[in-house]
Design a protein around this nucleic acid. Structure first.
Lengths: 270, 270
DNA sequence: TTGGCTATGTTGGGTGCCGCACAGAGCTTT
DNA sequence: AAAGCTCTGTGCGGCACCCAACATAGCCAA
């Protein structure tokens, strides 16, 4: 392997979407931190001191129960940020932020977040919109947990991770996946074996290789596509189709909803 | 029954928590709307034109799936508001707002919400904090859906509704509850019968009377109490205990975190 | 090579929930 | 009173998933 260059802040979509003057103001305060596998950014219930913008890491929000059970409620990569409570209010979250794929993040101290919040500028706009996307994902997870099979949910999970990685190699054991989906490891084994039998993935000892992404999408429940589409719309800063006439609507905040940027369309999916 | 007086805006906790000058500015634009049982405030995916502040109604956020399945992801009463996407960004939500207990709400037109948002004042602060509480509730629902039995979830659901009602009489059929929990009606029948056998509730044809609230709480999973505690902390505008030294933390926005109001402690739970 | 560790595969039995089909029971309408 | 509707109760077969226990297979270290 060649030595990798240090990641740029712009690898995070939110940071990249900031106007140049905001970048100039903020970037000096960004601190690059490595996020090793299994690192915990915040333990649930503890105070947060930074907002994290992943560049090439994937972090899961994992909700822990008193009896030791756990379930992941969302996945965050370079499309988002961690630590929304720092600008939403409250100071803690119910969930634990667990690094599921090693990499890096830039982090911004609480104080700077607060300052930017009070400026009421583009970063606030972006953070709120991302939060909206996050709510969407968590909601969909709630429904998915109720309605869909382990097989489907495994597909969804793999796709969520895949979208946030540069290649199609996932580093996670079945044991780990089971703790994310909140099911037994044996259940994941069964589901994974099916997928391997169908030629969709191959895996061995914590390394999963996705061979046929298309088929994976077909086997997944609607939850993956729904969230992806919604997130794309929200984070491409495009108004929803059916209310396009209401473009001038909400957070006016420096609003210049990108009509021109419309051609960019949906983000490439991996 | 005596004729009920029209509800006051202050019956909604968020509106009540606004400083007098903000109330003076906003209340003229509030419109009282009756919310009959089963009314739909927003269909999923449609544009919103108002933010709703319930006074004595209960509204559920119900998530619909392509195959007709559905699951409720949260319950909103006079502690909250509906239409968070109007200030978060985006314009639509994935969920449908369904009136689960008839009553009223005050609503504020999109334009006024936007104005208040740009003022960056107390209402924004409150709306964001409530959103944070909502995220907590949705997250807990996601975990609960995965981990807990129908029996436990029925208890949780009844308690969530109870907290938002003036008395202990719920108007909802088992059929309705099943569509909220995303389970079969028969499953609810079984669970409800158990509760009735234990003397916790009595019911008949869409009328449920909670006899022993304490026992209901005991039979519920932790999810109810967790969310309630978190919401109380968030919406009483008190910092979390363990980070009390960081009071000056976040949304400075007119921040005057109620150290003095500390004595009020937790909100009475019905 | 041997043993230890981690990851995956397999089993057998149990259960919670589903799907369906239908039966009774309480209001309402005429 | 009879019909009609809504709400609730019940029984049966089936399956997905759980629980516990154990078997194998790849990797590593001594």
């Amino acid at each position: 392997m060649t030595a990798k260059p240090a990641p740029e802040p712009q690898q995070n979509h939110l940071l990249a979407a900031l106007p140049p003057e905001v970048q100039l103001r903020l970037f000096p305060y960004l601190e690059l931190v490595p996020l090793p596998l299994r690192a915990v950014l915040y333990e649930s219930g503890t105070a947060m001191r930074h907002v994290y913008f992943p560049t090439d890491a994937i972090v899961s929000l994992q909700y822990l129960l008193e009896d030791g059970g756990s379930t992941a409620i969302s996945v965050v990569g370079n499309e988002g940020l961690l630590g929304i409570t720092l600008f939403m209010g409250g100071e803690t979250t119910p969930s634990r932020s667990l690094v599921q794929s090693a990499g890096h993040a830039y982090r911004l101290p609480k104080r700077r977040v607060k300052e930017e919040f009070n400026r009421h500028g583009r970063l606030l706009f972006l953070m709120l919109r991302y939060t909206q996307a996050l709510i969407w994902q968590i909601s969909q997870t709630a429904v998915c947990n109720r309605q869909h099979s382990i097989d489907q949910q495994l597909c969804r999970w793999l796709l969520l991770s895949l979208d946030r990685l540069p290649d199609s190699h996932l580093t996670m054991t079945q044991e780990f996946i089971s703790s994310m989906l909140g099911v037994r490891r044996e259940g994941v084994t069964q589901a994974a074996k099916k997928l391997q039998g169908l030629g969709v993935i191959s895996y061995s000892r914590g390394l999963i290789n996705v061979i046929d992404r298309k088929k994976l999408e077909d086997l997944s429940c609607e939850c993956y596509a729904t969230v992806k589409d919604a997130t794309d719309v929200l984070l491409d800063y495009m108004p929803q189709r059916q209310v396009i006439k209401d473009v001038d609507a909400i957070p006016t905040v420096e609003l210049r909803v990108a009509k021109g940027a419309k051609g960019s369309g949906k983000r490439d999916s991996v």
